[in-house]
Simulated scan of single mutants.
Amino acid sequence: MVGGVVLLLPDGEADSERGPSRWALGRSLPLGRSLARAGSPYGLVVHPVRYRVRGWNGAEARLAADATEAAEEVVRRYGDVPVCLAGHGFGGRAALRAADHASVGSVLALAPWLPAGEHEPPEPVKQLVGRQVLIVHGTNDQRTSPDLSYRLAERAKKVNRNICRFEVHTDGNALRQHHAEVLALATDFVLGSLFPHPYARPVADALAAPPPLGLRMPLAAGFGRSLRP
């Protein structure tokens, strides 16, 4: 019996009509396997989302639209089960943007790409109300801005207390340097947000802490080791 669903949202590009990137999809699969393995006792199902095109494409927000359609498909296939949107880069932006779907209970955004243009409106945050939200960003990310994700988290915290953000010191966009810790953090958050599974102490503390503490929580080396069998 399916108890919950994670929709994996791969990275994309700012503007493109090309088909989805197999490379970006491949990068999301280790997270999917980790979540499926840990969540199997709860009936967790993980589905990668295959975009129609890989471009966000301005106001069209194509990747967010595809995420919403995938959530609709979950409802058609499984009924009323909680959904977590989990994305990296542009997939992280799509996860945050599509959080207003009724079935979405939580959002995991890894190194989310966010707009920095002076003439672009800031990313909305009202759709995050009532959702559990975790943002993870490497401090040395040269592709997506850690500062922009902090500023979004700061705005979101004003309308939704159930948001936290972890910083992975010295890590880059791919979060490879502390890959095991990032997977453990993501897994702990997803299980805690979708099922009656207690959060690890650092996650619970980050959610409870006021800004900036809960939005600049360092991801400790070795996170998750004590949770492994």
Rank of each mutant, 00 (worst) to 15 (best):
residue 1 M to H: 13
residue 4 G to T: 05
residue 4 G to R: 02
residue 4 G to A: 05
residue 5 V to R: 07
residue 5 V to H: 01
residue 6 V to Q: 01
residue 8 L to H: 08
residue 8 L to A: 07
residue 10 P to W: 10
residue 11 D to N: 15
residue 13 E to K: 13
residue 16 S to T: 07
residue 17 E to R: 14
residue 18 R to Y: 11
residue 19 G to R: 11
residue 19 G to E: 14
residue 20 P to G: 07
residue 21 S to T: 05
residue 22 R to M: 13
residue 22 R to H: 12
residue 22 R to N: 14
residue 25 L to D: 11
residue 26 G to P: 01
residue 26 G to H: 13
residue 28 S to L: 15
residue 31 L to G: 07
residue 34 S to R: 15
residue 36 A to E: 11
residue 37 R to I: 12
residue 37 R to K: 13
residue 39 G to I: 06
residue 40 S to A: 15
residue 41 P to S: 02
residue 44 L to D: 06
residue 44 L to W: 04
residue 46 V to L: 06
residue 46 V to E: 00
residue 52 R to V: 14
residue 54 R to A: 10
residue 54 R to W: 10
residue 55 G to H: 10
residue 58 G to F: 06
residue 60 E to I: 06
residue 62 R to L: 15
residue 62 R to N: 15
residue 67 A to P: 07
residue 68 T to M: 11
residue 70 A to L: 07
residue 71 A to T: 14
residue 74 V to W: 02
residue 77 R to T: 15
residue 77 R to A: 11
residue 78 Y to T: 00
residue 79 G to F: 02
residue 80 D to A: 12
residue 81 V to T: 00
residue 83 V to R: 04
residue 84 C to F: 07
residue 85 L to G: 06
residue 87 G to R: 03
residue 89 G to N: 04
residue 90 F to L: 10
residue 91 G to T: 03
residue 93 R to I: 07
residue 96 L to M: 10
residue 97 R to D: 14
residue 99 A to T: 05
residue 100 D to K: 05
residue 100 D to R: 11
residue 105 G to M: 06
residue 105 G to H: 10
residue 107 V to F: 02
residue 108 L to D: 10
residue 110 L to S: 06
residue 111 A to E: 08
residue 115 P to S: 04
residue 116 A to D: 12
residue 116 A to V: 14
residue 117 G to V: 03
residue 120 E to P: 02
residue 121 P to R: 14
residue 121 P to C: 04
residue 124 P to L: 07
residue 126 K to R: 15
residue 126 K to W: 13
residue 127 Q to R: 12
residue 129 V to Q: 14
residue 130 G to N: 06
residue 132 Q to D: 12
residue 132 Q to W: 14
residue 132 Q to N: 10
residue 132 Q to F: 12
residue 134 L to W: 05
residue 139 T to D: 07
residue 139 T to M: 05
residue 141 D to H: 00
residue 142 Q to F: 11
residue 145 S to H: 08
residue 146 P to N: 09
residue 153 A to V: 03
residue 154 E to V: 11
residue 154 E to K: 13
residue 157 K to G: 01
residue 160 N to H: 04
residue 161 R to G: 14
residue 162 N to W: 13
residue 163 I to D: 08
residue 163 I to V: 14
residue 164 C to Y: 01
residue 165 R to L: 11
residue 166 F to Q: 01
residue 168 V to L: 02
residue 171 D to C: 08
residue 171 D to W: 03
residue 172 G to K: 09
residue 172 G to T: 07
residue 175 L to D: 04
residue 175 L to S: 04
residue 175 L to A: 08
residue 176 R to E: 15
residue 176 R to I: 11
residue 178 H to P: 09
residue 178 H to R: 15
residue 179 H to C: 09
residue 181 E to M: 08
residue 183 L to S: 10
residue 185 L to Q: 06
residue 187 T to M: 00
residue 189 F to N: 04
residue 189 F to Y: 00
residue 190 V to N: 00
residue 193 S to I: 09
residue 194 L to C: 08
residue 194 L to N: 05
residue 196 P to M: 03
residue 196 P to R: 09
residue 197 H to K: 09
residue 199 Y to W: 13
residue 199 Y to A: 12
residue 200 A to M: 05
residue 203 V to N: 06
residue 203 V to D: 06
residue 205 D to N: 12
residue 207 L to S: 03
residue 210 P to C: 08
residue 211 P to Q: 11
residue 212 P to K: 07
residue 212 P to V: 05
residue 214 G to V: 08
residue 215 L to G: 09
residue 216 R to E: 13
residue 220 A to D: 12
residue 220 A to L: 13
residue 220 A to S: 13
residue 223 F to M: 06
residue 224 G to W: 00
